[in-house]
Amino acid sequence: MIQYARHLARGEPWTGRGPDADSPRAFLGLVATGPTVVGDDRSWTAGMLARHAHDALLVDTEGHGFLQGAYLNPRLDVLVVHGASHRVGRGDESPRASRNAARFALGLLARLPRTPDAC
C-alpha cells in the first residue's frame, strides 16, 4: 500500500475539482502519536518531539489505537491517511484538510488491485 501511495503522491492527479482545489501535496513518512495536541512550538511536548522524533511529519492523537489493533492481525494491510488540519501557531484548517485527505484516500483505493479474498 505504501508503494501505491508513493506513486499517487508523486504526481498522479488525485485532487479532483471543486471550489477549494488548491493543489494540495501529499507526504509519506513517520507520525508521532500520543494524547497531547501540540499547540505551541515552545511547549515541553514540542521540545521532546524535536529531540526524539524530529523526523515525524505530524502528531496524531487518534490513530494509535487503530494501528495497534491492525498490528494484531498480520493479514491486514493498513495505511492511515491524515489531513494536516492544525499547524503550530496557525488556525484550524479542518474542512479543507479533511477534503484533501478524503480525495487522496479515494484516489489510492481506486488504484489498489482487486483480489478475490478482499472484503
Rank of each mutant, 00 (worst) to 15 (best):
T15Y: 05
T36K: 02
T61M: 14
G89C: 02
N73R: 13
D77S: 14
G65R: 07
T45Q: 13
L28M: 05
A84P: 05
R42N: 10
H7G: 15
M1T: 14
R6W: 07
V59G: 01
D41K: 02
F66L: 11
P113G: 09
Y4G: 13
F27W: 11
D20G: 12
M48R: 14
L49R: 04
H86Y: 04
L112R: 09
Y71Q: 09
T33R: 01
D117N: 11
P116A: 13
D60W: 00
A105P: 08
C119I: 14
A9E: 04
R87G: 13
V38T: 03
D22C: 07
M1W: 08
G29N: 07
M48D: 10
A5R: 06
W44K: 13
L112S: 10
L108K: 11
H64Q: 12
D92P: 00
A97S: 08
L67Q: 15
G63W: 00
L67A: 14
A102V: 07
A84Q: 07
A9N: 08
L49T: 03
D60Q: 01
A5F: 06
G69S: 12
L8N: 08
E12G: 10
Y4P: 12
F104N: 05
H7W: 13
G16H: 07
R17M: 11
T115V: 15
D92I: 00
M48S: 08
G11E: 06
V37D: 00
G18A: 14
P95H: 00
G107N: 11
V78R: 04
P74A: 08
D117V: 10
A32M: 04
P116E: 09
E62T: 07
R99S: 06
D40N: 10
L57W: 01
G18D: 10
R17C: 10
V38S: 00
M1I: 12
L76Q: 09
G47F: 04
G107K: 10
E62S: 08
S98K: 05
R99F: 02
